[in-house]
Design a binder for these strands. Sequence first.
DNA 1: ATGGCTCTCGCGGAGAGA
Length: 252
Amino acid sequence: MKIATWNVNSLKVRLPHLIDWLASESPDAVCLQELKCEDKAFPLAEIEAAGYHAVFNGQKTYNGVAILSKLPAQDVQRDIPGFADEQKRIIAATISDVRIISAYVVNGQAVGSEKFAYKMDWLAALTAWIKDELTRHPKLVLAGDYNIAPEDRDAHPDWKDEIHVSVPEREAFRRLLDLGLADAFRLFEQPEKIYSWWDYRMMAFRRNFGMRIDHLLLSQALVPQATRCWVDKAPRKLERPSDHAPVLVELL
DNA sequence: ATGGCTCTCGCGGAGAGA
C-alpha cells in the first residue's frame, strides 16, 4: 500500500499535475492540502476518471483538505471534534484497515504572533484528538503539511529560531511523536538535505533552499510494515508547480 | 538575501503562504 501527502497549493491550478502524477505513481491513497476550493467546485469527475474515490473538506480561497483513494473511504470525519475552527484543515477516513488523516497544520506566520498562538492551540487540539483516534484505530497514518521542520537537518541552516523551526513548534511535533507515532521518513537511511517545500522566490528550488515540513507519521502497528519513504521532487520541476513536493510511504 | 513568487477574489491591489 502506497500512501502519499501533497500540498497542491490550489487544486484547480494543479489538477493536470495531480492527474498525471496519479497515473505515474499509482498511490493507493493521497492526502491533499491547500485545495483552495469549495466542495461544490471540487473536480470530482476528473479524479474519478483517474480511478480514484475522493472525500474532501473544502473552503473558499484558503485551506481545504482531501483524501483520494483507490478503495472507497469509510467512516469519514471532517475537522477536529470539539475544537471550534472555521478553517478547513482536517479530513480523516478509513481506507481498507488503515485510518488515514489529511492535516493542514496552521502556518503561524511569525513566532509570538496571534496566528502563532492559533497554531499552538490547533496542534494541542490535534494531539488530544489523535491520542483518542489511536485507541480506536491501531493502524493510523497522520499525513500532511505540518509547517514544522522537526530537526535542524530538516531545514537549510539559514533558518534559525524562526517560524517552522522554533523550539515551541518542535516541542509540539515531539508531543505528536510521543503518542507513539514515528516519522516514516526517518525510519530509513536518507540522503542529506532532503526537503519537501521550497519558496517560489530567490531560485530557492534550484539552490535547494528548502525545508522538510510535509510528513507521514505512522502508528506503532504500521512501523514494521513500512518499507520505504521518499520525497518525489519531479512535480516541483514542472511548469507552474506547487511549492511543495509529494512525500510517499510504502507499506507491506 | 525573507525582497524579488504564486495563489485567491475579482478587475485593482491586498492578504496569505512558508
